[in-house]
Design a protein around this nucleic acid. Sequence first.
DNA 1: CTGAAAGCGCTTACAG
DNA 2: CTGAAAGCGCTTACAG
Lengths: 340, 340
Amino acid sequence: MKKVSITIKEIARQLGISKSTVSRALRDSSEISEETKQKVIDLAEELNYYPNPIAISLLKNRTQTIGVIVPDIANRFYSSAIGGVEDIAYSRGYHTMIYQSHELLERERSATRHIASRRVDGLVVAISSQSENIDHFASLQEQGIPVVFFDRVSDAMNSHKVRVDDYRGAFDATEHLIKRGCKRIAHIAGPKPVSITRFRLEGYKDALRKHGIEFQEEWVLHSEITQAGGTERTYQLMALRERPDAIFGASDRITMGIHSALRQLGYRMPDDVAVVGFCDLAMSSLLDPPVSSVTQPSFEMGQQAASLLLDLIESKNTPAEFETRVLQSNLVINKSSMRH
Amino acid sequence: MKKVSITIKEIARQLGISKSTVSRALRDSSEISEETKQKVIDLAEELNYYPNPIAISLLKNRTQTIGVIVPDIANRFYSSAIGGVEDIAYSRGYHTMIYQSHELLERERSATRHIASRRVDGLVVAISSQSENIDHFASLQEQGIPVVFFDRVSDAMNSHKVRVDDYRGAFDATEHLIKRGCKRIAHIAGPKPVSITRFRLEGYKDALRKHGIEFQEEWVLHSEITQAGGTERTYQLMALRERPDAIFGASDRITMGIHSALRQLGYRMPDDVAVVGFCDLAMSSLLDPPVSSVTQPSFEMGQQAASLLLDLIESKNTPAEFETRVLQSNLVINKSSMRH
DNA sequence: CTGAAAGCGCTTACAG
DNA sequence: CTGAAAGCGCTTACAG
């Protein structure tokens, strides 16, 4: 199939003037007479002319497009963050291209290659859990394509970062369980290489320490960010000689796994085992019992990351200092942890 | 920030040959000597040269990119379908751009404008429930940008379509409820303008008819495709003097609403009310009780739509005839409808 | 086998 | 106020 489009040349031909004049008239240059301007604009309208953005990209080496890479768009946290990115990008005249890494380093690399070669103007990314090496992002930045991290950030690279106060969120969740009378609080954490796993683990440990509960090595298990992972680790925890009386899950998928495992094993929540997760609300309220959770301002994270990125894109030089924004999470208490 | 890239010109300069020769060598033209070719390829490698796809797009009026518009990427059905589209597109050397309409005609129009102006090569789309008018898609097709519909298709436009056998799915679900002894089977349907709403409604009616159950106007309610919609309509159904003993929900969101409303109102599933929905499996098995559902081959739908689209893009002319592919759905029976 | 030239659709100094 | 020319990075007939 063939595409035909109206060009500036065609307008010039029909009006018997030069392409330069048409171009100037269309961008409302002050050096063109009102009369010519009007003729050009009218004809452009009539012919349904739209400038070819590809030609402009070639000229300016800019595409007015930003990329977003997330592990998985089906995850509500990320789809909502993408909503926030789109919101800001749209209002500032940019388009958003969405990529999924599926937690694979190779897919992430392929996306950055596409971004570089298609001259995407910048990138917002939540790093794949598999990516211990992040040279591909550093290389993008060296090529002059700014990168802003959100949610999953990395210390290995200097750039703007937007994350949630994972430490605080985990601390609050753990302390809440302690105040509800739980004594043996287990934690199913995310994959070790991920930065947020560390922050959350610290928050958990510090809450225990504050309340004089001794930390037990065997109460912390690492898991993939999947429901199956949560289920398996729950089996392992409940098989312990000293069973936990509470489990704190590090992500919504993991928490779904904890929940279904506990139900399947015949435990009652919260009386046998209290549960708190890092979840999205819509999800947690559907379960029976509804799950208490640390909720994150995902939409706002997307907005902030996008706006930091656009500032970078539109400024001439690298900023003197990169910024890390830490947003607050919110503990929502539901039946799964409401012990009497 | 400034981007610098190696061009063909730079390679030509360093090697003291012409741009034309470099270009030919890189595309392995048979008219270039092996020796020159090797020199060019080696230097390109060394300089880390990548051709500028924007320049090629300008030349060919092709971008090797297809668009996908879905109502909502957070919906598992759509995110999985997008996975199928990406799968095929990737293997055939295309990139995928994802747009969300959020069920708004205006957002859908804005996406098609972007697609046209950025010279995206083609579009796969599930129409927004709000879009009774689909001129924006027709206009894309007239501009030579082929459009393939999936899931939400329209009779108002002639093009390839991929949908699920909604009639059969609804028929099977309803017949299953009848065989389990349900006599008063309600149906919470989707928005009226959507094609699949009609197909599913027909399947439901025909199953009743086949088994000699008289169709009751008040047993069918239309709802938005949201959980809140399902909840509201369930209140309305259960408030009827003659309560239904089964509810068949037209989408996963609606079915989640039915489920939570019934539980909240104190009904037991399946004994008081049996429930079947059009759902995604991962979702339905998390609920208590797990929900029986008509599952759809979403990934495969995406694959088929993408491959029909790429065929259109790569063929010179419009095909003599457009094709509608109808895939089979699958009824998975769970506790919510297992009456004794 | 290689190069000079034209052209994809646009913008923008440079002349007039 | 308007136009001719150069150029963004590439490809490809046309010459030689």
